[in-house]
Amino acid sequence: MTEQDPQTIPVIIGVGQINDRPEQPGDGLDPVGLMAEALRRADADAGDGVLEDCDSLAVVAQLAWPQLNPVDGKVAEALGIDPSHCMQTAMPNGDSPILLLNEAANRIGRGESRICAVAGGEALRTAGQLAALKARDGSEKPNALRDASHRVRKGYAQSYGLTVPTDVYPLYENAGRAAYGQTLAQGQAESGTIWAGMSEVAAAGEGAWITKPVSAEDVITPSDRNRPIAFPYTKLQVANSSVNQGAGFLVTSLAEARRRGIPDEALVFIGYGAAAHESDNFLDRDRYDASPSLATSI
């Protein structure tokens, strides 16, 4: 077997994250600002001066500020760069970051790009605060800043309250629990243990929004600070959307990283990836206790 050419080996050379916690409601960064700052921090992590040579920028579509879309060009402008390849994902899906990572790696491997930047950011916290302020002074209707097509209750599923992901995931949670032969108590106990473990990790990480560990029992027990969301989920069993957070990373070739003097121990080598896509309409799927796309990809 011949040794792979370092020019075609993709590596991550810098990562950056930002938690934006403004002192005054509504003063936070918008998604463009979050993405740009995350990439500046990724550039600093890589040793500075990498972003100025960026020839590929890919960002995750954001839903907090729909009036800003598309934001890829705005992020490039904020960074003062003009990449020849600039794009935004079609939807703000949870698998978008890993999809863009694989696409960046493929661009490097094919010799199509030299420096790839990937970023995502959401400012739902500030969007909600601004909407509340405008509703209070009468200048805008409540949630005007968060009106978007995905929130419109139009269609068969939506008429039954199946509008956003937290409405739909319980279909899989409950079907899976039944298929595994678990009682409700057993399924909730397992879920609580998983989330409690993640809260311990978050407590030790600078990138986490909530840094207080929570017990498994507290995760699954409804309370004033842990309201029910969609059966059987409580607030602590779903993603925390009311945040201002951004993250980004830089990908290049092993040869370019070494040319820039970045030590091998500071690199993250990217493995193989695979993806499969099921119908966007979850009502078209034939079951909720398994995922054919997941099985195919693995």
Results as ranks from 00 to 15, higher is better:
222 P>K: 15
246 G>H: 04
170 P>M: 03
226 N>Q: 02
179 A>C: 07
168 V>T: 01
167 D>R: 00
147 D>E: 15
190 E>Y: 13
233 Y>D: 00
200 E>R: 12
128 G>Y: 13
223 S>T: 06
148 A>N: 08
256 E>K: 06
150 H>C: 09
250 L>Q: 03
216 A>K: 01
233 Y>E: 02
260 R>A: 03
235 K>F: 09
233 Y>H: 08
178 A>V: 07
230 A>S: 05
226 N>D: 00
133 L>I: 09
236 L>W: 01
198 M>E: 12
144 A>M: 01
215 S>N: 12
176 G>F: 07
220 I>N: 00
221 T>Q: 14
173 E>F: 03
158 Q>G: 14
227 R>V: 09
259 R>P: 07
137 D>P: 00
164 V>G: 05
215 S>G: 12
249 F>L: 13
152 V>S: 11
161 G>F: 01
256 E>A: 06
173 E>S: 09
165 P>V: 04
208 A>S: 12
136 R>T: 15
148 A>Y: 11
237 Q>L: 05
231 F>R: 09
167 D>T: 07
247 A>V: 03
241 S>N: 04
125 R>I: 05
127 A>F: 02
184 L>E: 13
172 Y>S: 05
238 V>I: 12
167 D>P: 04
240 N>D: 07
209 W>D: 13
170 P>I: 01
214 V>R: 02
238 V>A: 11
187 G>H: 03
180 Y>R: 12
125 R>G: 08
245 Q>T: 09
260 R>M: 06
208 A>W: 04
217 E>C: 06
222 P>I: 06
206 E>M: 15
164 V>T: 12
246 G>T: 12
131 A>E: 12
234 T>L: 00
227 R>M: 04
230 A>L: 08
238 V>H: 08
251 V>R: 03
264 D>L: 05
204 A>R: 15
126 T>K: 05
162 L>R: 02
151 R>D: 06
218 D>S: 04
234 T>S: 03
180 Y>L: 15
207 G>T: 14
126 T>I: 08
128 G>D: 01
254 L>R: 07
242 S>Y: 11
256 E>T: 02
252 T>V: 11
190 E>H: 10
164 V>K: 08
152 V>A: 13
206 E>F: 15
241 S>E: 11
180 Y>K: 13
206 E>R: 12
234 T>K: 03
135 A>V: 06
241 S>P: 06
141 K>P: 14
147 D>P: 05
